[in-house]
Structure formats: structure tokens, C-alpha cells
């Protein structure tokens, strides 16, 4: 095999693609938390969530990947952008960061990371004895409408209540402040 053929070996290509997706995710996450300009954060969030969709693809569920893109990126991030537009005074200057706060946050985050890593790498993860191999969307749809029908309906109600609540909060606070 030539080096070029080696390069385009499916194993290596696959791993390179995985690395690209993971780097999108992390880059997006860092862009979401570090900059002071909120629009940068939102854009970083969008990038991150796209990467997470890719990871879901790697985890064997294209349906979930698409749902991620639709719901998170398409709905949630756009509504965050709307909220920014409606509230944030972008023309005002941003106050400086406070070092103790950042240091405290960093150390706590590090602590939590350490604990999680300890638990991840020290637990002997045992797969279940019998594993089914049915991943398809058909089965998912069937489960949603038969076995997990109650949860499905509850989610709908939750969303309805959330929307009503949001309308209510906005209108009350609007009346109060005006």
C-alpha cells in the first residue's frame, strides 16, 4: 500500500473524522464559556451541539443525532438568540472579570472533573449479559407509541405547560414593570 492509500485507509479515516467531530465539540464548548461577548457564546454553543450530534451518530443513533440538530440547534439556540436580542444591551461595555471568582469556578470544575474521571476509569464496566441488536428507528417509534406512550404524552403536556407558563410570566412581569 502506498502512504496515500494508507492515509485513506478506512480505519485511519474513521479515526480522523472522529477526532474532527470531538474537536468541534470541545472547541464549541470552550467558545461557549470563555468569551465575554454573549453572541460569541451562542455561536460556540451551536458549534458544540452540532459536534454532539456527530457524536450521537458515532454512538449508533442517527435519529437522536437528527433530533439533536432539530431541537437543540434549531429551536433552543435560536430562541436564546432571540432572548439576547430582546434583552441584552450589547452597546454597553462589559465589566471586567473577577479573578477570585474565575479561580474558584475553575477549581470546583477541576474537582468535579477529577471525581468523575476517578469513577469512570476505576469502575469495571460490565456490559449486560444479553444484548439486543435492534437499533432501528422503526422499533424506536413503536416503543414510543406503545411502551413509553405515557412518557410521550407527559412530555407533550410538560411542553404545553412550559409554553403557557412562559407566556404568563412574561405578561405579568410586563404588566408590573410598565
Amino acid at each position: 500500500m502506498t502512504p496515500l492509500q494508507n492515509f485513506f485507509d478506512p480505519g485511519i479515516l474513521g479515526q480522523a473524522a472522529f477526532a474532527v467531530v470531538v474537536s468541534f465539540t470541545f472547541a464549541g464548548a470552550l467558545i461557549a464559556v470563555l468569551p465575554r461577548n454573549i453572541l460569541y457564546s451562542v455561536l460556540g454553543l451551536i458549534l458544540c451541539l452540532t459536534g454532539v450530534g456527530g457524536i450521537f451518530l458515532y454512538l449508533g443513533s442517527p435519529f437522536i443525532a437528527l433530533m439533536e440538530l432539530l431541537i437543540y440547534v434549531g429551536a433552543i439556540c435560536i430562541s436564546i438568540v432571540f432572548a439576547i436580542m430582546l434583552s441584552y444591551p450589547l452597546h454597553l461595555s462589559l465589566p471586567k472579570r473577577k479573578l477570585p471568582k474565575v479561580a474558584g469556578a475553575f477549581s470546583v470544575a477541576l474537582l468535579v472533573f477529577g471525581v468523575l474521571i476517578t469513577i469512570i476509569f476505576r469502575t469495571p464496566w460490565q456490559p449486560a449479559a444479553v444484548r439486543s441488536t435492534d437499533w432501528s428507528v422503526n422499533t424506536l417509534g413503536a416503543y414510543l407509541l406503545t411502551r413509553y406512550d405515557l412518557a410521550f404524552e407527559v412530555i407533550s403536556i410538560v411542553l404545553l405547560v412550559a409554553i403557557l407558563g412562559a407566556i404568563l410570566i412574561s405578561s405579568i412581569s410586563g404588566r408590573r414593570s410598565s
Partner: peptide, 27 residues
């Protein structure tokens, strides 16, 4: 393996609801 996907779907749904409410509270 279907169960996990269902669950993840529900997480996303709840995240959406929570974002709606959070945004209205922020406003």
C-alpha cells in the same frame, strides 16, 4: 439499546421546556 435513545429524546424535550421557562424568567 432502544431505551437509551428514548430517554435521550425525553432529555431533549425537557431541555427545551426548561429553556423556554428560563428565558421567560430572564426576561
Amino acid at each position: 439499546p432502544i431505551i437509551g435513545q428514548v430517554y435521550t429524546l425525553f432529555i431533549m424535550g425537557f431541555a427545551a421546556a426548561e429553556t423556554i421557562i428560563a428565558l421567560s424568567i430572564i426576561i
